Deep mutational scan, measured.
Amino acid sequence: DEFHFHWNGRDIRVRGDSEELRRLIEAIKRGELSEEEIERAIEILER
């Protein structure tokens, strides 16, 4: 699976399928994380 979302003017695409990944992306979409937490998560996910 590939998750695709927009954040902070960026087009983010992440491959993978796990419950943890889904929860993280939902939290990002709901605005539950700080900008710094989101940046760090995206860096890890894009590897």
Score class of each variant (00 low, 15 high):
1 D>T: 12
1 D>G: 12
1 D>A: 10
1 D>H: 11
1 D>N: 13
1 D>Y: 11
1 D>S: 09
1 D>F: 10
1 D>Q: 12
1 D>M: 12
1 D>W: 08
1 D>P: 13
2 E>V: 09
2 E>Y: 13
2 E>L: 07
2 E>K: 04
2 E>F: 13
3 F>S: 03
3 F>Y: 14
3 F>A: 02
3 F>G: 03
3 F>L: 10
3 F>P: 03
3 F>E: 04
3 F>T: 04
3 F>V: 07
4 H>P: 02
4 H>F: 13
4 H>Q: 10
4 H>C: 09
4 H>S: 11
5 F>D: 00
5 F>G: 00
5 F>T: 00
5 F>M: 04
5 F>I: 06
6 H>G: 02
6 H>A: 05
6 H>Q: 10
6 H>W: 08
6 H>L: 06
6 H>N: 09
6 H>R: 08
6 H>E: 10
6 H>S: 08
6 H>M: 10
6 H>P: 02
7 W>M: 03
7 W>D: 00
7 W>A: 02
7 W>R: 01
7 W>Q: 01
7 W>T: 01
7 W>N: 01
7 W>P: 00
8 N>K: 14
8 N>V: 01
8 N>D: 03
8 N>Y: 02
8 N>C: 02
8 N>E: 05
9 G>T: 01
9 G>N: 04
9 G>D: 05
9 G>H: 03
10 R>T: 04
10 R>L: 05
10 R>V: 05
10 R>H: 07
10 R>S: 04
10 R>W: 02
10 R>E: 04
10 R>N: 04
11 D>F: 10
11 D>I: 13
11 D>C: 06
11 D>P: 14
11 D>S: 05
11 D>A: 06
11 D>K: 06
12 I>T: 00
12 I>S: 00
12 I>E: 00
12 I>V: 08
12 I>G: 00
12 I>P: 00
12 I>W: 14
13 R>D: 13
13 R>N: 15
13 R>V: 15
13 R>W: 15
13 R>G: 06
13 R>Y: 15
13 R>L: 15
14 V>R: 00
14 V>G: 05
14 V>F: 08
14 V>H: 03
14 V>L: 06
14 V>E: 01
14 V>S: 02
14 V>A: 04
14 V>P: 03
14 V>Y: 15
15 R>Y: 14
15 R>H: 15
15 R>C: 08
15 R>S: 14
15 R>D: 15
16 G>P: 11
16 G>L: 05
16 G>I: 10
16 G>D: 06
17 D>C: 03
17 D>V: 05
17 D>Y: 05
17 D>I: 04
17 D>T: 07
17 D>H: 09
18 S>D: 10
18 S>G: 09
18 S>F: 05
18 S>P: 07
18 S>H: 07
18 S>K: 09
18 S>Q: 09
19 E>A: 11
19 E>D: 12
19 E>Q: 12
19 E>L: 07
19 E>W: 07
19 E>G: 07
20 E>G: 08
20 E>L: 10
20 E>D: 13
20 E>V: 11
20 E>P: 11
21 L>H: 14
21 L>W: 12
21 L>I: 14
21 L>C: 06
22 R>Q: 12
22 R>D: 05
22 R>E: 06
22 R>Y: 12
22 R>H: 11
23 R>G: 13
23 R>F: 13
23 R>T: 13
23 R>L: 07
23 R>Y: 12
23 R>C: 07
23 R>I: 15
23 R>M: 14
23 R>P: 08
23 R>A: 15
24 L>K: 01
24 L>W: 06
24 L>N: 01
24 L>M: 07
24 L>Q: 01
24 L>A: 02
24 L>H: 02
24 L>F: 10
24 L>D: 00
25 I>S: 04
25 I>Q: 04
25 I>F: 07
25 I>Y: 05
25 I>P: 00
26 E>K: 10
26 E>I: 11
26 E>L: 14
26 E>D: 12
26 E>G: 11
26 E>C: 04
26 E>Q: 14
27 A>D: 12
27 A>L: 12
27 A>T: 10
27 A>W: 09
27 A>K: 14
27 A>Q: 15
28 I>Y: 05
28 I>A: 03
28 I>S: 01
28 I>Q: 01
28 I>R: 01
28 I>G: 01
28 I>F: 05
29 K>C: 07
29 K>A: 09
29 K>F: 11
29 K>P: 02
29 K>H: 12
30 R>Q: 14
30 R>C: 06
30 R>M: 14
30 R>L: 12
30 R>N: 14
30 R>I: 09
30 R>W: 09
31 G>I: 02
31 G>F: 07
32 E>A: 12
32 E>S: 13
32 E>L: 11
32 E>I: 12
32 E>M: 09
32 E>F: 09
32 E>G: 11
33 L>P: 02
33 L>A: 03
33 L>C: 04
33 L>I: 07
33 L>N: 02
33 L>Y: 07
33 L>G: 02
34 S>N: 12
34 S>I: 04
34 S>C: 02
34 S>D: 09
34 S>L: 05
34 S>E: 06
34 S>R: 07
35 E>V: 13
35 E>M: 11
35 E>D: 14
35 E>H: 14
35 E>W: 08
35 E>Q: 10
35 E>N: 13
35 E>A: 10
36 E>A: 13
36 E>Q: 13
36 E>C: 03
36 E>M: 10
36 E>R: 09
36 E>N: 08
36 E>G: 09
37 E>S: 04
37 E>G: 07
37 E>Q: 10
37 E>W: 03
37 E>L: 04
37 E>K: 03
37 E>F: 04
37 E>N: 04
37 E>M: 06
37 E>P: 00
38 I>W: 04
38 I>G: 01
38 I>E: 04
39 E>A: 06
39 E>Q: 08
40 R>E: 12
40 R>C: 05
40 R>G: 07
40 R>Q: 14
40 R>N: 12
41 A>L: 10
41 A>D: 02
41 A>R: 08
41 A>M: 10
41 A>Q: 08
42 I>L: 08
42 I>F: 04
42 I>S: 01
42 I>Q: 01
42 I>R: 01
42 I>W: 05
43 E>Q: 08
43 E>M: 07
43 E>W: 05
43 E>A: 08
43 E>Y: 06
43 E>H: 06
44 I>S: 08
44 I>P: 01
44 I>T: 08
44 I>W: 13
45 L>E: 01
45 L>P: 00
45 L>H: 02
45 L>D: 01
46 E>R: 03
46 E>S: 04
46 E>I: 13
46 E>V: 08
47 R>W: 12
47 R>S: 15
47 R>C: 13
47 R>P: 12
47 R>H: 15
47 R>M: 15
